[in-house]
Simulated assay, not measured.
Amino acid sequence: MAGSPDRIYADPSVERLFTGATIITFVRTAITLAIAVWAAYDASLTWIVIGLVTYWVGDSIDGEWARWRDCETRMGAVVDMMCDRLSCGALYVGLIWLQPGGWISDEPMTWIGIPIGIYLFEFMVIDMYLSLAFLAWPIRSPNYFHVIDRRIYLWNWSRIGKAANSGAFAVILLVSGWVWLGTLIAVALLVLKCVSLRWLLQLGIPIPSRGSEGVPAA
């Protein structure tokens, strides 16, 4: 069961780098990067959008595969985070370079670098720190952070929290073509992550004792 202790808590005996889920992660990241490179070469917004869809769909598939095949690992969770940010960075930098227009306003978004820069800082720095914090507890991934702190989990790794922090920003920005709206959303996400970070620091991140397994005692 998805919420059973066996599913929530990490099992050192099953930890490994290569699982069906991580292979999907590596493949979808390679495809996304290839699309991002081609989009830059072709100066094509269409290919950027295809890359974003590939990234989002692939990110969903590897997670669902891990849960369906019961091969969730802490290694896999970290690999997924790193690959997400690599894919995201490549595609969003491409958007800055292209300065496309939106569907509502087709004027080139000359200052698109402002909202994207804020978003990338939020996602690649603060959110990365938040996401890696699960490693301080014996859970398999941030998807189970609700057993540590439900409030932080709901804001960041619930389905709504994930949607708000991934696809919503790009979709609204590209549909509207309004840099000011993208900036407001990016700032709102940054504030949300900063508040979550404050909650995490108040919660306190446990430090393993020197007598823990694998750590030599004094």
Rank of each mutant, 00 (worst) to 15 (best):
A164H: 00
L130A: 03
G167M: 13
E122T: 15
H146F: 11
G113L: 07
Y129P: 01
R159K: 14
A133E: 05
D149H: 14
R140D: 04
R150I: 02
E107I: 06
D127S: 15
V125K: 06
I139K: 10
W155H: 05
G177V: 05
G101Q: 11
G177L: 02
I172A: 11
S158V: 10
A133R: 03
N143L: 12
W155S: 10
G102Q: 06
W137I: 02
S158C: 00
H146S: 14
V125Y: 02
F121L: 15
A163G: 10
A164T: 09
W178T: 12
G117Y: 10
I126N: 02
W111K: 10
M109Q: 01
V171N: 01
I116E: 10
I112M: 05
I126L: 12
P142M: 01
S176W: 12
P108F: 07
S166M: 09
P138Y: 06
N143T: 08
M109Y: 05
R150F: 02
F134I: 00
L135I: 14
F121R: 00
F145W: 02
L174E: 00
T110S: 13
W103P: 12
D149I: 04
S131Q: 08
A133D: 00
W157R: 04
I116F: 11
F121Q: 00
I139L: 02
P108D: 03
G161L: 09
S105T: 13
F145R: 05
E122I: 09
K162F: 14
A168I: 15
S141L: 06
G113P: 06
Y144E: 14
H146G: 11
D106H: 12
A163I: 01
R151E: 05
Y129I: 15
A170P: 11
R150Q: 11
N156T: 14
N156P: 07
A170Y: 05
D149N: 15
M128L: 07
A136K: 05
N156K: 04
A133Q: 04
N143Q: 11
A168K: 01
A164V: 12
I152R: 06
S131V: 08
I112Y: 00
P142W: 10
T110D: 10
N143G: 12
Y119M: 14
F169R: 09
I148M: 00
I160F: 09
P142D: 01
G101R: 11
W137S: 01
I172K: 03
G177Q: 07
E107T: 15
L173C: 08
S131R: 09
D127E: 13
R151A: 13
F134D: 01
F145L: 01
V125L: 15
K162R: 11
S166Y: 08
